[in-house]
Design a protein around this nucleic acid. Sequence first.
DNA 1: TTCGATTTGTTGCTGGGCACAACATACGGG
DNA 2: CCCGTATGTTGTGCCCAGCAACAAATCGAA
Lengths: 404, 404
Amino acid sequence: MHAGTVRRRHDTTAVNPRATHLSLALRHVAEASGQISRADIAARTGLNRSTASSLIDELITGGLVKETGATPRARAGRPATALALRDDGPAGLGVDVNVDYTAVCVVDLTGAVRYKHVVAVDQRGHTMTEILDRINTLSRAAHAAARADELTLCGSAIAVPGIVDRDRATVTLAPNLGWRDLAVTEVLPADVHGLLDNEANFAALSEPGLLHARASYLYVSGQIGVGAGIVLDGRLYRGTHGWSGEIGHLTVDRDGPPCPCGRRGCLERYAGQEAILRAAGVPSDPGTALGVRPTVALIADRARANDPATLAALTRAGQVLGATLAGCLNLLDLGHVVLGGIYRDLAPWIAPEVEREVATQFLGAPWARPTVEVATYGPEAPAIGAARSVIHDVIGDPLRWLNH
Amino acid sequence: MHAGTVRRRHDTTAVNPRATHLSLALRHVAEASGQISRADIAARTGLNRSTASSLIDELITGGLVKETGATPRARAGRPATALALRDDGPAGLGVDVNVDYTAVCVVDLTGAVRYKHVVAVDQRGHTMTEILDRINTLSRAAHAAARADELTLCGSAIAVPGIVDRDRATVTLAPNLGWRDLAVTEVLPADVHGLLDNEANFAALSEPGLLHARASYLYVSGQIGVGAGIVLDGRLYRGTHGWSGEIGHLTVDRDGPPCPCGRRGCLERYAGQEAILRAAGVPSDPGTALGVRPTVALIADRARANDPATLAALTRAGQVLGATLAGCLNLLDLGHVVLGGIYRDLAPWIAPEVEREVATQFLGAPWARPTVEVATYGPEAPAIGAARSVIHDVIGDPLRWLNH
DNA sequence: TTCGATTTGTTGCTGGGCACAACATACGGG
DNA sequence: CCCGTATGTTGTGCCCAGCAACAAATCGAA
């Protein structure tokens, strides 16, 4: 995880052992919350038992970890006292400014979603000031809700549909919002410094089980376009500029239909929302279509009604998507794909095709069969992932929280 | 860089500050060898001057770093004493077992190639024992040459064309050598523990300038197949199983010509050596073709003679390769490609096409124009990269060398 | 030339933090 | 009931980084 405001470009800076070990101990507690003892941490990290105890004590007095009583053990010996993350300590605020809705949520240290509020509104009909005002209002409400729930917001993160400059906390370009070079995090409450990232990237962090396990996977985030978040060893891979995961314009067929990007046969032209609509024979109606949800629901309805054209369109989209993803898996040697965004809602028809394509085209399949999973969260995924990224920064550097 | 035999799966182990800081100081010396002082290191790392001095002293007495006299400075103040890597300290042994040649080389701490020996021989005509014997003989010769040059071999690495299990130091499968589950590193001299990896991966590490700069790039290694080594932030990305970089079977055209892998229209069918040969109208002659070098030289000859069919084949191959690479760059947000293997020899005809495709298809091109570079080394690249990986392990953990 | 300013490198001191060992604690089992 | 076993705590010593003062070596200005 990115270390917040600390510009850790590479590991060229001196190391602070205490901070590193506090994070290490906390991470082990997070990965086995309620099932781990001081002695376990010592054994797993290689630290001495006394050192592990000292670290845990500091985390307990700091309000990040609690004891959950003694655990009955089968073996002989003194029973261990189990440790768990506190659910009433620091919490993260996540905001998602999408084209057709704005979402906020609060996630506590355990990763649980404690507050969630989604407002469906087409941003394209509003000015930038109105949008920012709405973010501010929703954030303050979330802030109040967190406080009422005995949580302390210790950071925030905003997901936007576009290109961001994380270091400058600025939205470089968000075409669908009409934003350019906008320091959007400034509208957040002053006491929570704001992180910023792409929706697909934050959405990739929303999966509950995967992050703790230091998993590597591709989170496919289908919206109007098709993007992906790349998680390697439990950390989001952002690329050299932060634009990683642009799979929507991978070429499926050099002689395929033209794409607004200037090329031909891009993945979006086969597996994007518009393409599926068109292939299903639904007249595209940008006037009334209020964005992702309703359109996707429409397709799903027709598929459930066994409309032949729709089913054929979904099968075709799944095949093309699966073939493209198989290529990505081959390039990166990943064995796991998560289908998010519209593909989550269309999973009954898309997922089997993706699974088949990936299973047959992944070169490592004979040794390690790749898995295809449906995302846990739908439209809330980016906001939840954003909030979770704040929590990950706390786990990555607990000292910042411990020092007030 | 991988920490050798130490199974550092993730950063779940305790940190040793002294070891980390020794590596940190050494890395800074390596990146600016001859142009850096103790005070510089202190400034760049954030360590105290006295600490930096202590670290450097330890590295000097350990034989890794030397002083190269005072540097005249423009500014006022005491002139700094420049530090540089020693070229007579530890060295790495690199071995490459290819289908049609075996190469060994020795690289010193500065990255300079101090010994190199390539034996052209078609391994397919020999038994496994013969091949292993040759590796052993060549390694002993390299060992003797290093000793005569006042170098101390402190490790070795073998590159093989196939799938390896690094943790077990075993070749899982090398079809063209007929190997399966072979612990090839055991034939190396006993005092150098052997690393193991794929040829494309090691070749990616052979580029001189790029590694020190913590660069991110894709090293395309065209041989009979097409592979790639992925370097992210100066570290080789190997994937979850170590099979990353398999771009040869990315789909270019779903309705293209069939491929032995069972799919259709794979990249190899357009930009692989065999495909270029066939498209150029050269009768494929596996009987006399002694592998990569001669065949590629043949194509290059015909291209130099302006043979229309060959030029068209190369143009087509470059276009398809470039388009595929652009997709990879978009997925990973990389801005740099290095053309190695056969593409290095065919660069005059391939590189411009790749450059054009990448420039037009890389989505970040308007903000950061991608660069296409021709590899520094040819067939020796895997062996040199292998040796260099040994050196990188020394720089990554100098304590192991300092403790004898 | 001389003296102050400036930067580099070294030395002695201090404190943080980890390992180690010994001990108290708390169970299971014969 | 006592022994073996495992957990957690306490006291001690050592490694190592930070700090400050000082010596060294140069530039620049008077």
